[in-house]
């Protein structure tokens, strides 16, 4: 489904701020895979997701979604295949537009936008039902500006927007990191439900090892722009936090490094 082949990305090349964020990264995802991604700060996790989404061009390598080579496609064209939720709850929605208007924008992801009315009556009914499923009471506030919502409500809405038009790939970048623990758990639960109900292929970055173990059918750990650990299938199901720490200690060597990578 998703193929990342020899991806390389260096930020600010040739300056003192030069930073190799991805170095020869390879990854294949099958249809319906739910991948969780862990790794320390600056490991390149967000860079990998942004490279897939097309936020910036990569220096080398290829990105294929299904049989489509999207390596050279601009961000807004790739959006036809991709749904995204960002770490910052402010980033995924238009604050000065209404809840239903935001959903209407998302429903047209990948479609041509013309001079038809931007929000039809039938759509509103669909959105009402979908918002109700979230269980946050947003269905009664459809004409409220999104800027008035809390961080958790916004992330839930962004999730709904990302999945409204079924994406071939869902990208979640620490989308619960900015929320309080109870809200984070709720948003994560909603994410998992949406992913399973729609059989979505998903990559989810998380800083929480337990979540990385609980959710998904495959787990990778990144360090210095590469994948250093890849666990799938039965092995992933049996995985414990202890295993993960041990596996990493064996790879990295010293305890300080382990802590630096896993506990940051």
């Amino acid at each position: 489904m998703l193929k990342l082949e020899h991806l390389c990305k260096t930020f600010n090349p040739g300056t003192v701020n030069e930073k190799k964020a991805l170095s020869d990264l390879n990854l294949h995802l099958a249809e319906g895979d739910f991948l969780t991604v862990i790794g320390g700060n600056g490991a390149g996790k967000s860079t990998m997701l942004n490279a897939v989404a097309g936020t910036f061009p990569v220096d080398e390598g290829r990105i294929l979604i299904g049989s489509n080579d999207v390596t050279r496609l601009p961000e807004h064209k790739r959006a036809a295949y991709i749904g995204r939720v960002f770490q910052d709850p402010m980033m995924g929605t238009a604050p000065t537009m209404q809840i239903d208007e935001n959903l209407a924008l998302a429903a047209r992801r990948g479609a041509r936008r013309g001079l038809k009315w931007g929000l039809s009556r039938e759509e509103k009914e669909v959105y009402f039902a979908k918002l109700k499923e979230l269980g946050l009471g947003l269905e009664d506030r459809m004409t409220s500006k999104v800027g008035l919502l809390s961080g958790g409500q916004r992330q839930a809405l962004t999730l709904l927007m990302a999945s409204l038009k079924r994406p071939r790939l869902l990208l979640l970048d620490e989308h619960t990191a900015a929320l309080d623990p109870a809200t984070a758990a709720k948003v994560l639960e909603i994410s998992d439900r949406i992913i399973r109900e729609n059989h979505l292929t998903c990559m989810m970055i998380t800083h929480n090892m337990r979540d990385a173990i609980t959710y998904g059918n495959r787990l990778i750990m990144m360090n210095e722009g590469r994948i250093i650990l890849d666990i799938a299938g039965e092995e992933k199901k049996q995985l414990t936090k202890r295993d993960l720490l041990d596996r990493f200690a064996a790879l990295a060597g010293t305890q300080e490094e382990t802590d630096a990578v896993l506990l940051s």
Binding site: H76, I82, A94, L105
Partner: peptide, 14 residues
């Protein structure tokens, strides 16, 4: 949407 949040607009294919 472009004026309100360009990153979001691009993510929605605009």
């Amino acid at each position: 949407a472009t004026g309100a949040n360009p990153a979001m607009a691009r993510a929605q294919g605009i």
